[in-house]
Amino acid sequence: NLAVAQADAGRARAAAGAVRLAADGRSIAVVSPVSGRITAATASLGQFVAAETELFRVADPSRLQITASLPPADAPRVRTGDRVELTTNDGQTIAGRVRSATGVVDRDTRGATIIIEPSAGGSLLVPGQSVQARIFASGGVARSGVMVPQDAVQTLGNRSVVFVRTRAGFKAQTVQTGSRSGGMVAIMSGLSASTPIATTNAFLLKGEIEKETAE
Score class of each variant (00 low, 15 high):
residue 132 Q to T: 15
residue 182 G to A: 02
residue 64 L to T: 01
residue 105 V to K: 02
residue 53 T to K: 14
residue 215 E to L: 12
residue 141 V to M: 07
residue 15 A to G: 09
residue 131 V to Y: 13
residue 112 A to D: 01
residue 147 M to E: 11
residue 20 R to L: 15
residue 4 V to C: 09
residue 41 A to P: 00
residue 10 G to E: 15
residue 167 R to M: 07
residue 55 L to S: 06
residue 119 S to Y: 09
residue 136 F to N: 10
residue 111 G to I: 00
residue 181 S to D: 03
residue 156 L to Q: 04
residue 72 P to A: 05
residue 199 T to Q: 14
residue 66 I to F: 08
residue 138 S to I: 12
residue 143 R to S: 08
residue 121 G to V: 02
residue 60 D to R: 01
residue 21 L to I: 09
residue 129 Q to R: 08
residue 157 G to E: 08
residue 22 A to F: 00
residue 156 L to D: 05
residue 2 L to Q: 15
residue 191 L to V: 02
residue 178 G to V: 03
residue 159 R to S: 11
residue 126 V to R: 09
residue 173 Q to E: 12
residue 8 D to S: 14
residue 59 A to H: 03
residue 162 V to Y: 03
residue 187 I to V: 07
residue 48 F to I: 09
residue 198 A to K: 14
residue 73 A to I: 10
residue 162 V to H: 01
residue 130 S to D: 15
residue 88 T to G: 10
residue 213 T to Q: 13
residue 128 G to T: 06
residue 8 D to I: 14
residue 155 T to W: 05
residue 79 R to P: 06
residue 118 P to C: 03
residue 73 A to N: 04
residue 21 L to A: 07
residue 17 G to R: 05
residue 173 Q to K: 12
residue 150 Q to Y: 13
residue 173 Q to T: 11
residue 200 T to E: 15
residue 117 E to C: 00
residue 57 R to K: 05
residue 3 A to D: 10
residue 76 P to M: 01
residue 37 R to L: 08
residue 114 I to L: 08
residue 67 T to A: 04
residue 137 A to P: 03
residue 127 P to V: 04
residue 147 M to D: 08
residue 106 D to P: 00
residue 127 P to I: 04
residue 42 T to P: 00
residue 144 S to P: 01
residue 28 I to Q: 09
residue 180 R to E: 01
residue 34 V to I: 13
residue 212 E to L: 14
residue 27 S to W: 10
residue 198 A to T: 11
residue 187 I to H: 02
residue 191 L to N: 04
residue 68 A to C: 07
residue 126 V to D: 07
residue 203 F to S: 11
residue 115 I to F: 05
residue 153 V to D: 03
residue 104 V to T: 14
residue 154 Q to L: 01
residue 98 V to F: 07
residue 203 F to H: 14
residue 82 D to C: 00
residue 51 A to G: 12
residue 83 R to F: 10
residue 208 E to V: 12
residue 102 T to G: 14
residue 193 A to C: 00
residue 87 T to V: 15
